[in-house]
């Protein structure tokens, strides 16, 4: 009886684990969506394509030695990247790293740092949402 209960709750946990993660990620996206609507009334929704362009593209305005997100995260979102100090960065793609974009404080902290590093400014809410949407598809 006990065993079956434990088994049942375990499998329930296993099944809801990823669901939890995607729920938290959705909450973050919803927040960005609300902000985006405030920043731009014409906002329609996030675009994975725009997210890809931002991720792959070269930018001016930030530090010259880190002119692109791919400088650290590499061209392949499914692969591991490397910090400037040389430490491994786990993949950014959800398919490889389901824990990504689930902690609002982490997400804010790294967008804050990395957008400043690469673009020399904060990213807009729609840019952040586009980026995560792109990574969800990866």
């Amino acid at each position: 009886m006990m065993k079956r209960l434990i088994l049942a709750s375990l499998s329930a946990l296993l099944m809801t684990g990823p669901a939890f993660a995607s729920g938290e990620r959705q909450a973050i996206l919803d927040q960005f969506s609300t902000q985006a609507k405030q920043q731009d009334p014409a906002f329609k929704g996030f675009s994975a394509e725009k997210g890809q362009t931002m991720f792959m593209g070269k930018h001016a305005g930030g530090k010259p030695e880190t002119s692109s997100c791919t400088t650290c995260h590499t061209q392949d979102p499914k692969g591991s990247g490397q910090t400037k100090a040389g430490k491994e960065i786990k993949p950014m793609a959800i398919s490889r790293n389901p824990a990504r974009y689930t902690d609002p404080a982490e997400v804010e902290k790294w967008f804050g740092r990395n957008c400043n590093q690469v673009l020399g400014r904060d990213c807009t809410a729609s840019e952040k949402g586009d980026f995560i949407t792109f990574m969800i598809g990866q």
């Binding site: 490397q82 910090t83 400037k84 100090a85 040389g86 430490k87 491994e88």
Partner: peptide, 12 residues
Amino acid sequence: VFKTKLVGGKAN
């Protein structure tokens, strides 16, 4: 040696 992927840098 410090630049290999497994080490990455002196600070590691």
